[in-house]
Design a protein around this nucleic acid. Structure first.
Lengths: 198, 198, 198, 198
DNA sequence: TATGAATGAGAGTTCATTCAT
DNA sequence: GATGAATGAACTCTCATTCAT
């Protein structure tokens, strides 16, 4: 067998990085940075602890990377909603579903963990400041305003409503982790009642 | 100088215990058991780390103690609501306010932390199992049923509705911690919309 | 470079375990569980303190493990004596030599330490109770009785004699530790005079 | 009531010191310096931990004081034996009894603890060196030599015999502590057999 | 590249000693 | 003088990271 060429090696490297990140996202989301031990990530990802450090500089660096992605992804999810050609209420419902499904869930949980963990690095804190709640509110404002205009969204202060909506979604995500059945995720319809008329 | 008499000593001991517990509740609620370092509690409470151990056997023991109190308190809050002579909707609103205010908030956050932390002791896990979600649902069922009967609460499966309501409240509490203004607590009126008609 | 194969790793692990146990036996025997600091064992064994915990769960667990071995070994030493085809007096002399030599010495010292240390774990106490002095007396009784029968052992209450013999041996072991020349181990002949005629 | 005069106060002070020393001797003898906690001594002596430090500079100072006394006492016990008007064998028997009784026992155990404890101060070590085994041997040599001369003591190297005798006595003392019935103190007659002719 | 043994900094905990009363 | 609350250094143990193979 011919040895792998450089590109193939690069491919393997990248695959492995993605694989580790995928696993780490779930573990960090569930247990936070303090509750997550390197041994957990290594074991779940099926690599040795030593190998981990060939792909990432440190636990903290990986955590930060994931936060970064989570934030970018969340912004991009919102932006994508605008391109759907359905009424505002339907857009919001779709966004809600996206957030609640497996793709979005872990990212939300992770961001929460970042906000509430002790011992996160200064760099991570700076990163978090780059995506304040206000940014999300501003992104959603046009959509909600349109909703009010066409009479699908209840009257009231929009900034407050969006903020509450996001807080509730985040909260619902955060308290939910698969192995633990103490809480359960509310149905989308129920959540929509917060925002919509009758 | 005469040594302190028994009553004074008792007073000091009680004060310290309360003071440490008060601080620890907030720190544990915010950072969980893994994220909370003994140095944080000691510093925040203004005592040396060593002194902590004259009042509590271990970090874990205090955590458990607080969980215990949190659970008892939460059940008792619910029970108290029934004695109010107001319509069901008002009772639920009052309960919601109690949960969201400073007294209830930390207890809810703490229970959440206990459910989602890795490395909690076996004893703590057993404690958590004594207060499953079902217990809270059963406590609230009569109240919500009465609400439906008098037409104040929307139609629909009650167990699911209560479970969702509790999950949302928990979530909202959990993502909220004072020093951090990323999220904000929704107004009670907004939350009530999940449950009530028009 | 290729990583070590499974056999090599196993070898390393075994070697380390033996090495640490060997060192710990001597240190525990000399200083007891309270007087022995983890730093002593680590330094003496030439490993870091951290590494110790990859091989043993805790200081207490290792102490207990060694006690267990010491007790099994001591019983088996006695049992082996019976298979020698020499007169009773010679058997006792051989046993005495075995106990006094380097192999047996540390085990005896360790058992003594366990019996006289404050702060040994409840588990360790239970372990000690499984090997009461009576058990050793019963094991030796046939040998000493035979000795009396053939006129090699002095007349007198055998249980008391064996108990005294063991106490003296233990005592002699205990007060003896290599770096410290205050006491010296008596010659076997001298000790035999306690038991034997002329 | 008139306030106590200076002499009375001095008397109280001295009584208390003796009382604490008496208690500490037993505890140190049993558990060693590492196994003995200040709380044990304070509790047993019925004083507060704080008060202890009005009487003694430190735990180590008290330990050292007791060692000093133990050594002086042991030498003086031996010297006193010579003034008895009985044959050598009887003198030795008496000495043996003195050592084995409650007065001597704790002192012997304490000296043993000092010799085998980690973490004893440099000062304590120096103290121990002032009373080497050789000193005791030299003190006993005339007595044993006389015993050999009148045919009461077995032939053989006297230094070795005395050294063994002392080691055995020490050992027997050391392994014996009241609450623990694993070992038992041999009868004096049995011990004398080591030294004396049939 | 890949492994897991090895390290060391830092966490939780204990306890001799000091201090306020 | 007397008390026990309070401190801090030292101990046991954990775990992110490095290293030898």
């Amino acid at each position: 067998m011919a040895p792998l060429n450089e590109e193939q090696l690069h491919q393997i490297r990248d695959d492995r990085k993605v694989q580790i990140k995928h696993v780490a996202l779930k573990v960090f989301a569930k247990y936070g940075i303090n509750g997550t031990k390197m041994s957990m990530i290594a074991k779940e990802a099926g690599v040795s602890q030593g190998l981990f450090y060939r792909y990432f500089k440190s636990k903290d660096e990986l955590f930060m990377m994931l936060i970064q992605e989570a934030m970018e992804e969340s912004v991009s999810s919102i932006e994508k909603i605008y391109s759907l050609s359905v009424p505002p209420k339907e857009k919001i419902r779709t966004l809600t579903e996206v957030i609640l499904d497996d793709g979005g869930k872990y990212y939300f949980m992770l961001i929460h963990q970042a906000h509430t963990s002790s011992g996160v690095s200064e760099k991570t804190k700076q990163l978090l400041e780059q995506y304040p709640l206000k940014l999300y509110i501003d992104l959603l404002l046009p959509l909600f305003r349109e909703g009010q205009r066409v009479g699908e969204i209840v009257e009231g202060d929009l900034e407050e409503m969006i903020s509450s909506y996001l807080s509730i979604l985040s909260g619902v995500m955060v308290i939910n982790s698969q192995e633990n059945s103490f809480y359960q995720i509310p149905k989308v319809d129920l959540l929509m009642r917060i925002l919509t008329k009758s």
